[in-house]
Simulated scan of single mutants.
Amino acid sequence: MALTNRYKSAVGAGTLTALILVLVFGSPWYADWAADNTRSDTALGWWLQLLSWPRWRFDSDDTFRSILVADLKAILVVVLTALFLYLLPGSQLARARGTLSQFFAGWGSYIFAGGFAALLTTLFLANPSLLNAFTAAGAGSAYGLFVGWIVGLATLGGRRGTSR
């Protein structure tokens, strides 16, 4: 484990974790399972359903625009996570790898990524409005708040950028 942490990039580890979260829990199969087998009036059921928020799908019954918006949201969550992990200075300023600043930088990156992905994809809807954009951004930020700690844990101990 010590060898993997020595060469692990915080940005790469966080981005890979975000990609896995979106691919696995955003899949139509998981989303259907969570909707059918969990209850949203319990904490665990609510969280298991929340995991499927950046859904991606390829259903032939939907319009191309709705499929594009759903898939774009999932793609943007991963891309924006990488961008925010690179831009957030918390782990750059930390004296030692593995500090809480790396954890919070990873977690914060996922919160921002969820909020901005939802905000940007709302602009591509048929009738975008400022209220819908704010509501979507709130849902995306809530997703990042309750799921982003996983990305934060993945970034712990990783090196920053290309320097050692």
Rank of each mutant, 00 (worst) to 15 (best):
P128T: 12
R97F: 03
A118H: 00
A126P: 03
S101L: 07
R97G: 14
T121S: 07
S129R: 08
W149T: 05
L120H: 03
A113M: 05
A133V: 02
A118Q: 00
G115D: 01
A126I: 13
G144C: 08
L100N: 03
R97A: 12
N127L: 11
A136N: 10
G98R: 07
F116W: 12
G114C: 03
G161S: 12
N132C: 00
A117D: 14
N127I: 08
S101A: 05
A117Y: 06
G157F: 13
I150S: 11
L123D: 03
L125K: 13
A142K: 12
G158M: 06
T121F: 04
G144M: 06
V147M: 11
L145H: 08
G114V: 10
N132A: 12
A137Q: 07
G158N: 04
A154N: 12
N132W: 00
L145P: 08
G157W: 09
S109H: 00
Q102M: 05
A139E: 11
A136K: 04
A136Q: 09
F124A: 14
V151D: 15
L130D: 02
W149N: 11
I111P: 07
R160Y: 06
F104S: 14
A136L: 09
G161Q: 03
S109Y: 04
I111R: 00
A105R: 06
Y143V: 07
L123G: 14
Q102A: 15
G114Q: 05
L123T: 04
W149I: 14
V147G: 13
Q102Y: 08
R159G: 15
A142H: 15
G114T: 12
L130C: 01
L125M: 11
A113P: 09
T155P: 05
G157M: 13
A133C: 01
A139C: 04
G161Y: 13
Y110T: 13
Y143H: 11
S109N: 04
L119W: 01
R160A: 07
G152Q: 07
F134S: 05
S141P: 02
S109T: 00
A154S: 15
S141Y: 02
T135D: 01
A113E: 05
T99P: 00
F124H: 05
S109G: 13
I111A: 06
W149H: 06
N127M: 11
R160F: 05
G157Y: 09
R97P: 06
A105W: 10
Y143M: 05
L119H: 04
A105N: 08
S109I: 04
A126F: 12
F134R: 01
